[in-house]
Nucleic acid binder design. Structure first.
Length: 914
RNA sequence: GCCCGGGUGGCGGAAUGGUAGACGCAGCGGACUUAAAAUCCGUUGGCCGUAGGCCGUGAGGGUUCGAGUCCCUCCCCGGGCACCA
């Protein structure tokens, strides 16, 4: 046997053998438990995989391999998220059709995944762009439609002028297109939506039932944004001082406008989470798009109408980025109308302002500047009253107290003129003032009492609002799943019958999107012209579904990927679902994971699946960073927004003085030129070395820094395993299992077996809990320990031979998930048959793993002073005696009185003395 | 601003409230070699030293016989959200 790791001699051969043996074909043996391990559905990019991408595939593979060896039926599939913008954009750039391009890229991905030895069942693979797959994506669309969860709405959408498509809210980051960074515009186009909002509460509640990182759960809860409050109605009037008045208040700076009509105009509803602050309401605000504005315009004079319209126009022209710019100064205009506060009948001016969003709540608010920072800023700018309705506590007042001022005085000042107190008091503590019969209540009491008041008065009710918006699914693009809808001559949509599925994506020459917002499909007559369900002339929907639709159910299809008669056999889905362990990057925390959960819940409600949550356990891997050269800008060069250095190519960096360079750890990406491919890593170090390195270098969730030295370390470790195996090989007894129980332990056999069983236990636990770094560390420790034990062992005793055989076999088997090529190579060199993958995962024997001697730490007053070697299980009082007898302890307790002795069995003795 | 993560040797990182620094990288010393690489053996938190001791897990308090670990306050780094009423 070779005594070092020489991957080029055996790795590719083993991969061939695995393939020939169809080793990773999913087994569906009903007598066994199932384990479904899944990686996020990757989009196959032209750049191929980097070693960074391997960082989730390797750990999932390790877990799945162990589960299989433990006797589970393992489903470990892989496919490709082929539809969508990235593929289409790349195809347009390369002037090639996306379909063959994607096939080629997917092939490369598969080759790369195979190269690093990932044990996928490729017989179950598919691409989301396969008609046999998207047929069922369309079928699910129909199910949603039939359940009233897919609807069409003429809506203002986020429009990316560069990608020429509508974007979901989640694809707009800071007003920019997430993909290309172009400022997003608004356009009104009829769009298809999925009613995810209907499931908002369930999507929050069921997070409690899954084993996900708390951070991701928090992100989702935050995104769904539940808030409890009260929605109530306020009447409006056009006079400040009661009927029949004409002019607005003089003190509000809003006079000088004639009111054309004084009739009771209408009413509007507001949503607030702080009904307890209603007595502090000094104005109200409508979103510029609020429908009531139209009514108001009919009742105010022309000058005001033009002011309102000018403001509405400017609000509309603002891009989301500008509108949401941080710390932007508040803008708005007075409408000429007043709202009547139902709590005290005060009339307060009604404004329109773009800091109120039409899309949330009712698109209208009651403004309480004393206790809301946004309202405060608005009030200050427009000279409106700031009336506190909560007495602040001392914590709030302290910073405002003047030199030597009594806080009572500060409070009096505050209550007199809160306008100078910035930032505002959030009124979560303190008691109510200026609130009639509610005075003296806490926030909690006031909220309940005033909610009751609103409900009793029948002008509103307690309500829960969510930030979550419905899921915009339409894309005006070619490369996506066609929406299975036909419109009749009146423009009414209907879904196509099941036997007309799939609505095939036509093969076209020109698939570039039009810049008028029309899908390329709309120019293909044969596609557009269709027949309605009642045989009439129809027009086919030409938008396609956004890519997230396709990835919202692929995990179900993997359970039954070749079914032509249905999306899946319910029995198969019942068997395999949920995914037991789902592994991927945290960047999909809200989008994909929320959509997939939503579809699963809908399908559950339809009785099509019997899980409410698709992914029982979720794990997010860290990224792989590469050291990348940057430099400071030269004279005359300017940096882009958010950049603090200029990227330098590795080529140029070689010729630059080291002082000018600034090396940084950044994520591997093609654009940074810092990618290491699996091919390079495998060629230089070997596939198992890559696997070991990525597992060992840091905890799974953490980012890691790519290092050639680290790879070298993995190679060294594997070589030590080979050397150990080659040393044990002459004494290896394949039959050790049947002999070891009846052989009397001798020599170092007990120590060897202890090391073996400690490792088995550690490996099993650590893999289960994704602690791969300590799993590999334990393997290294075991190799080192066995090496030490074998030192000077010229001719091992019978017991030692058997113990070493057990040790070597266990080591190889337990290392097989991490280093499968090497494990199989060593296993076969030891005379083993078949593949390590087919061997049983060993069970640790706790008795054998137990130490017979333990080291007891002896402390005096909590400081380590001595250690004792004692037999395991030594009684507490014996430990105490031994500790007190220690010379070192005596020297530290000399002249002191021993007050207490604390004994932790098998661990430590602490002598407390003073 | 709000919500999540994190701050431990020269570096990556280990440590159910119980001997801080497992394991690895880098370094140092040695063996092998004509020499080097590779490999192997030893060593490696800092300070003072003969023994031995003192100090050490971002900072400061606290709980405890005992704190990297639990509690409070603060600082720094990374990520997410951000006018959501």
């Amino acid at each position: 046997m070779n005594d070092r790791y020489e991957p080029s001699n055996f790795e590719s051969e083993w991969r061939e053998r695995w393939k020939t043996a169809d080793l990773f074909r999913t087994r569906e043996d009903l007598n066994r438990e199932k384990f479904y391990g899944l990686d996020f559905f990757p989009y196959p990019s032209g750049a191929g995989l980097s070693v960074g991408h391997c960082r989730n595939y390797i750990p999932t593979d390790v877990l799945c391999r162990m589960k299989f060896m433990q006797g589970y039926n393992v489903l470990h599939p892989m496919g490709f998220d082929a539809f969508g913008l990235p593929a289409e954009n790349e195809a347009i750039k390369r002037q090639s059709h996306p379909a063959p391009m994607i096939d080629q890229y997917a092939k490369r991905y598969q080759d790369q995944m195979e190269l690093i030895g990932i044990g996928y069942d490729w017989s179950r693979s598919f691409k989301s762009s396969d008609p046999s797959y998207y047929k069922w994506t369309q079928w699910i669309f129909k199910k949603l439609y039939e359940k009233g969860l897919a609807y069409r709405k003429d809506a203002e959408i986020n429009w990316c002028p560069k990608d020429k498509t509508a974007l979901a809210n989640e694809e707009v980051v800071g007003g920019l297109c997430e993909r290309c960074g172009t400022p997003v515009e608004k356009r009104a186009i009829p769009q298809w939506f999925f009613k995810i909002t209907e499931y908002a509460q369930q999507l929050i509640d069921d997070l409690d039932t899954v084993d996900w990182p708390e951070g991701i759960k928090a992100l989702q809860r935050n995104w769904i944004g539940r808030s409890e409050g009260v929605e109530f109605e306020m009447e409006i009037t056009f006079s400040k001082d009661g009927d029949p008045a004409v002019a607005p208040a003089e003190d509000s700076g809003l006079d000088g406008f004639e009111v054309k009509s004084n009739k009771k105009a209408s009413s509007f509803r507001v949503f607030t989470t702080r009904i307890d602050t209603i007595f502090g309401m000094t104005f109200c605000v409508l979103a510029p798009e609020h429908p009531l504005v139209r009514t108001i315009k009919q009742s105010v004079d022309a000058e005001r109408v033009s002011e309102i319209e000018a403001y509405q126009a400017s609000a509309k022209a603002l891009s989301d980025m500008d509108r949401q710019a941080a710390n932007r100064e508040k803008t708005g205009v007075f409408t000429g109308a007043y709202a009547i506060n139902p709590a005290n009948d005060n009339r307060v001016p009604l404004f329109i302002a773009d800091y109120v969003l039409m899309g949330y709540g009712t698109g209208a608010i009651m403004a309480v500047p004393a206790h809301d920072q946004r309202d405060f800023e608005f009030a200050v700018k427009f000279g409106l009253d700031v009336i506190p309705t909560f007495e602040p506590d001392t914590d709030y007042l302290k910073p405002f107290a003047e030199e030597g001022e009594n806080l009572e005085t500060t409070k009096a000042r505050y209550l007199e003129d809160a306008k100078t107190f910035d930032p505002v008091f959030d009124a979560k503590s303190g008691v109510m003032v200026n609130a009639n019969e509610f005075n003296g209540m806490t926030s909690e009491q006031g909220s309940q009492a005033l909610a009751d008041f609103i409900e009793t008065a029948e002008i509103g009710e307690r309500k829960i609002n969510y930030k979550l918006r419905d899921w915009l699914i339409s894309r005006q693009r070619y490369w996506g799943c066609p929406i299975p809808v036909v419109y009749d001559k009146d423009g009414h949509p209907d879904v196509v019958p099941d036997d007309a599925l799939p609505v095939m994506l036509p093969d076209v020459e020109n698939y570039a999107p039009g810049d008028d917002g029309s899908s390329p499909l709309s120019h293909i007559e044969e596609f557009v012209n269709a027949t309605t369900n009642d045989g009439g002339l129809g027009r086919r929907e030409t938008d396609t579904m956004g890519g997230f639709a396709c990835s919202s159910w692929y995990f179900l299809r993997f359970c039954d990927p070749h079914n032509t008669g249905q999306a899946w056999d319910p029995e198969k889905v019942k068997y395999w679902m949920p995914v037991d362990c789902y592994v991927g990057g945290a960047e999909h925390a809200v989008m994909h994971l929320l959509y997939a959960r939503f579809w699963t819940k809908v399908l559950f409600d339809l009785g099509l699946v019997d899980v409410k949550e698709p992914f029982q356990r979720l794990m997010n891997q860290g990224q792989v960073l590469a050291l990348t050269p940057y430099r400071q800008p030269h004279e005359g060069e300017t940096l882009g927004v958010g950049e603090d250095g200029i990227l330098v190519s590795f080529e140029d960096a070689k010729d630059m003085p080291e002082n000018d360079l600034d090396w940084r750890w950044v994520r591997m990406s093609k654009s940074k030129g810092n990618v290491v491919t699996p091919e390079e890593a495998v060629e230089q170090y070997g596939a198992d070395a890559l696997r070991i390195y990525e597992l060992f270098v840091a905890p799974f969730e953490q980012n890691v820094q790519w290092s050639n030295e680290g790879m070298q370390g993995a190679v060294r470790f594997l070589s030590r395993v080979f050397r150990l195996a080659s040393e044990i090989a002459p004494n290896f007894d394949a039959d050790w299992k049947s002999k070891i129980g009846s052989t009397i332990p001798d020599g170092k056999s007990t120590d060897i077996r202890r090391a073996t069983h400690k490792f088995i236990a550690k490996a099993t636990d650590d893999i289960e809990k994704f602690a791969f770094n300590t799993y590999i560390a334990a393997a290294m420790t075991t190799v080192n320990t066995l090496n030490d034990l074998m030192k000077g062992m010229k001719s091992p005793t019978e017991g030692e031979k058997l113990a070493l055989s057990e040790a070597m076999e266990s080591l190889v088997v337990c290392l097989a998930p991490a280093a499968p090529h090497s494990a199989d190579e060593i296993w076969s060199a030891l005379g083993g048959k078949g593949f390590t993958y087919q061997l049983d995962w060993p069970k640790a024997n706790a008795e054998l793993a137990k130490e017979d001697k333990v080291t007891i730490a002896v402390q005096v007053n909590g400081k380590l002073r001595d250690t004792l070697e004692v037999a395991a299980g030594t009684a507490n009082d014996e430990l105490e005696q031994a500790a007190l007898a220690s010379e070192k302890v005596k020297s530290f307790t000399d002249g002191l009185t021993v007050r207490k002795v604390i004994v932790v069995p098998g661990k430590l003795v602490n002598v407390v003395a003073n």
